[in-house]
Design a protein around this nucleic acid. Structure first.
Length: 582
RNA sequence: GCCUCGGUAGCUCAGUGGAUAGAGCGUCCGCCUCCUAAGCGGAGGGUCGCAGGUUCGAUUCCUGCCCGGGGCACCA
């Protein structure tokens, strides 16, 4: 739609001969007006040309308007304010757009801006040491929406979950599980303060005991020679010694078996949870696989051959300060184990090797200091770090009415994503999570999300769609029938103010899809759909759809049908259902 | 101290350098003999944190300051 005006304007500017040379630095901005009194679109090009042409904006605007070619889509133009050129389009222009909605259907609003661009989108990637909590839900909802938006803009998107299945946390997970199993078998022991205390460990332990009852016997040596646990002693040292003892008494192969069992239980749970939430992945990428197949070593070798590593205090360091990071980073610890960071640069090297044009990582805002480090690693390996985009998601704070809900992973008493979904439903959770900018702290009101009232934005949007479906049901029950061809023929009958407003609104959808994808900002779609719903509800209250007169009735039904299509397309992008009845 | 996100109506927040800064909730007043009142119409409510700068034009961009969230590991 916007293209219509841009094309006309460009032709006019070309006809403006003398201005030609000065056009270079000027961007031809055509924008929707905020107020329909100013027309449908406006351009500030005359004001931009004022300086180079040494003429007043209004005079330039007049020159441009004189050069505008005639078009049946353009009703009139006007010069306004300091020198805006306002464009008023004809009804026919909007009727034409309505037909485009009809013919494009579910693809209306989509474009091919991202043609031939391959994107790897990595999101959530929560540690598989426990169930997903509410914050991960926001990451999941946001990431899935960004994927939908990019796909709608023609990008080829691959969604990936990086599974942190390596490192000390896996040992702690295995130890926690085994100790709980031992407790459940009747042994009394002192559970370490640094181990995972969540209730889900109890369930995993019980399932493991069922499968391997021989793990139930407490080895005499397990709790011997341990440094004191915290808070008086050192919780970390205590835990590490205990892990070493467990490895010893169980044998590393059987201990690894316990870890794998717990890991797979948790991972299955995460997959189910996200699947039910409507968030799917193309790949679950194992961190452990990077060290198993030599990718980490390859990355370290690459860094070494580029002379950006050195040894200090028994560890191997990456000279990140040469690449705009604030300090150098350890890649191999003094105990010989590689760091998480080493895996991560190997992972990004692997992503580049897979031939993507764009890498998008969605991380918690608490990881923002990590961004320059990864970029530094990519630069040092000779990789194009500019294809990496990191989007940060701020925290979620839960409220019940005006009361803040406490969440603490420490005590294991956090609200899981599953609990949240059960309480408020998947649709409400998906919408609430993307309603605000990802860079904004989110206050999530549980009471509001589950209230079945007009206060709840989820219902407001869905209700608009359901109302339209209801009209068509009522139509059938009154055996009136719907003649689409007649409706299309009679679109000029749509003269009510609410109808004109809605026609204009619907035509904005493709621009919103483009904007939301460019900014990776799904909240634009939410706000837009609220506007569509509001325009529709206003129309619904002002005009009767099931008019006796067939011409008007069918024209209105056609507009209602296309409104439902746009609502459906928008809700689909958000991962929210568009019900026919509520 | 450094990095980062924010400060817009009573509350929660939109706002892609433009015209009279918006929405929802809350408050107040109205609207169902008709397609779902899970809806609609109206009223009230603002020094866009403060001070400079760039610009024809700044809530928007830049700088400084004030206030708040978060982060600054040989954890992942």
């Amino acid at each position: 739609m916007k293209l219509v005006v841009e094309t006309l304007l460009r032709e006019a500017l070309n006809g403006l001969g003398s201005a030609q040379t000065t056009l270079d630095g000027v961007t031809i901005a055509v924008e929707r007006t905020r107020d329909l009194a100013h027309g449908h679109f406006a351009s500030n090009v005359a004001m931009q040309l004022a300086k180079p042409l040494r003429k007043s904006p209004r005079d330039i605007a007049k020159l441009i308007i004189d050069q505008l070619p005639a078009s049946e889509l353009l009703e009139k133009t006007a010069i306004a304010g300091p020198g805006f050129i306002n464009f008023y389009l004809t009804d026919a222009a909007f009727h034409q757009e309505l037909l485009r909605i009809r013919s494009s259907g579910a693809a209306y609003g989509h474009n091919d801006n991202g043609k031939d661009q391959r994107v790897l989108l990595e999101f959530v990637s929560a540690n598989p040491t426990g169930p997903l909590h509410v914050g991960h839900g926001r990451h999941a909802a946001y990431g899935a929406c960004v994927a939908n938006l990019l796909s709608a803009n023609g990008f080829e998107v691959r969604k990936e979950y990086y599974v942190n299945d390596a490192g000390r946390q896996m040992d702690i997970l295995g130890l926690s599980t085994w100790l709980r199993l031992l407790e459940q078998a009747g042994n009394s022991l002192s559970f370490p303060s640094g181990a995972y205390r969540g209730n889900y460990i109890l369930d995993i332990a019980a399932a493991l005991q069922q499968q391997q009852p021989e793990l139930s016997e407490l080895p005499a040596a397990l709790f011997t020679d341990l440094p004191a646990d915290g808070p008086d002693g050192n919780a970390d040292e205590h835990l590490d010694a205990l892990i070493a003892n467990a490895n010893e008494s169980l044998g590393s192969e059987r201990f690894r078996g316990v870890i794998e069992f717990a890991l797979n239980s948790i991972l299955d749970d995460i997959k189910d949870d996200l699947g039910e939430f409507g968030v799917s992945y193309d790949e679950w990428f194992s961190e452990k696989s990077l060290s198993d197949d030599g990718a980490v070593q390859k990355a370290l070798t690459l860094l070494a051959s580029n002379n950006v590593t050195y040894e200090k205090e028994g560890a191997v360091w990456f000279r990140a300060t040469d690449y705009d990071d604030e300090k150098d980073r350890v890649v191999v610890r003094d105990n010989g184990r590689t760091t998480y960071f080493a895996s991560d640069i190997a992972y990004h090297l692997n992503k580049v090797d897979r031939g993507f044009n764009k890498l998008i990582d969605i991380w918690g805002s608490d990881h923002h200091g990590y961004v320059p480090r990864v970029r530094a690693g990519m630069d040092a390996m000779g990789q194009p770090s500019e294809i990496l985009e990191v989007d940060l998601v701020q925290f979620v704070v839960l409220f019940r009415g005006s009361e803040k809900v406490q969440m603490s992973t420490r005590s294991g008493e956090f609200i899981t994503l599953r609990e949240l979904r059960q309480e408020v439903g998947d649709d409400a959770a998906r919408l609430f999570f993307v309603m605000r900018s990802n860079e904004q702290h989110l206050e999530f009101d549980l009471d509001l999300a589950k209230s079945k009232s007009n206060e709840n934005p989820v219902y407001y949007l869905q209700y608009a769609h359901a109302r339209i479906a209801s009209v068509f049901r009522e139509l059938n029950s009154q055996s009136l029938g719907y003649d689409e061809a007649l409706g299309i023929e009679q679109l000029s009958r749509l003269n009510a103010g609410q109808e004109k407003t809605l026609l204009v609104r619907l035509s904005q959808f493709p621009e919103m899809v483009e904007l939301a994808a460019r900014q990776k900002a799904p909240q634009h779609i939410v706000h837009y759909l609220k506007d569509v719903a509001q325009d529709f509800h206003a129309w619904y209250n002002a005009c009767l759809f099931l008019e006796d007169e067939a011409e008007l009735r069918n024209a209105r039904l056609f507009l209602a049908q296309q409104t439902a299509q746009v609502m459906r397309n928008g809700l689909t992008l958000l991962g929210v259902s568009a019900p026919d009845s509520m």
